[in-house]
Design a protein around this nucleic acid. Structure first.
Length: 280
DNA sequence: CCCCAGTCCTGCGGGC
DNA sequence: TGCCCGCAGGACTGGG
């Protein structure tokens, strides 16, 4: 499930297309259902063909191609989407192709097994509307203890649930929320308004540490094998997970056997160590 | 403000 | 052994 580290890895993996011009875009539909591509592909094509890719950014869990027209192409991978320069994991779930001129790289692909993701071209005002401060909090890598407190300290929600709120902080998903709270040694069910200043400091520090570490390992490829970098290679951070998907196993910090637990919060799995993450 | 359930979708694995 | 159901969860919506 691409979260900030996986999406950032995809972004870095396609930096080689900066300066290229878009020759064509094509919707690839090998199944009856396809992903959301907006606007319709003929309008999409009119907006982007001949345009140069000026920069590649990331907004929360989305990859953004900034074009010389000021329009942007936004890839939102959701659960199983991949932005690729190499051959995709399968032809079956290939969804979108962008052919390029002026660089060695000839095409950029969007592949999505479950098809929950989307590809959009949007104007600057649409960009602001979709990803402005009303919709998206500061990037998780830019969060400080002060920012966390400002945005969440008044909330009565469980801290793990709050970390998933993209309006509060952008980029943290289900996997890294559990990992961050384990490093910060805070129980996931602890309410935000009960956390101390030093605990917010620990959350801010853990957020930087865990996300930067995960980027260094090029993200997490879970047992379903879906997530890959732009060259269709698996990430390595799954081998470093402290608690995620490790229910019943030993905690890597306190070393106690069987202390890693799985609970459900807001209909999502949460993992934590019952031995060293404090009280709810 | 916050919570919950439902929606999209496919592949896998647990249980019978 | 084989089949079916439920689960995985990011973003969003509507109702309480």
């Amino acid at each position: 499930m691409p979260e900030l580290p996986e999406v950032e890895t995809m972004r870095r993996g396609i930096l080689g297309i900066v300066g290229a011009r878009i020759k064509d875009v094509e919707r690839v539909a090998r199944r009856r259902k396809s992903i959301a591509i907006t606007p319709r592909i003929d309008f999409f094509r009119r907006r982007v063909v001949g345009r140069r890719v000026d920069a590649i950014g990331r907004v929360g869990k989305r990859v953004v191609l900034h074009l010389d027209s000021q329009d942007a192409i936004v890839f939102e991978p959701r659960m199983t989407g991949l932005v690729l320069l190499a051959d995709p994991p399968s032809q079956e779930h290939l969804r979108f192709r962008c052919t390029l001129a002026g660089r060695k790289i000839r095409e950029l692909l969007y592949w999505d097994r479950r098809g929950l993701g989307s590809v959009r071209v949007i104007s600057p005002p649409e960009f602001e509307k979709a990803f402005g401060p009303a919709k998206l909090g500061p990037d998780a890598l830019a969060m400080t203890a002060e920012l966390f407190r400002e945005r969440l300290a008044g909330s009565k929600r469980a801290v793990k649930v709050a970390l998933l709120d993209q309006r509060a902080v952008a980029g943290i998903g289900n996997l890294y929320a559990s990992e961050i709270l384990h490093v910060a040694q805070i129980h996931p069910a602890r309410r935000c308004n009960k956390l101390t200043r030093s605990q917010w400091r620990a959350i801010a520090d853990a957020t930087q540490m865990v996300l930067e570490e995960a980027i260094r390992y090029e993200g997490s490829t879970l047992s379903d094998g879906t997530y890959r970098n732009a060259l269709n290679q698996a990430g390595g951070y799954q081998n470093c997970h402290r608690v995620y998907d490790r229910a019943g196993k030993a905690c890597p910090r306190c070393g106690n056997e069987g202390e890693v637990r799985r609970i459900v919060q807001a209909q999502r799995a949460t993992f934590y160590c019952a031995g060293c993450q404090g009280k709810r």
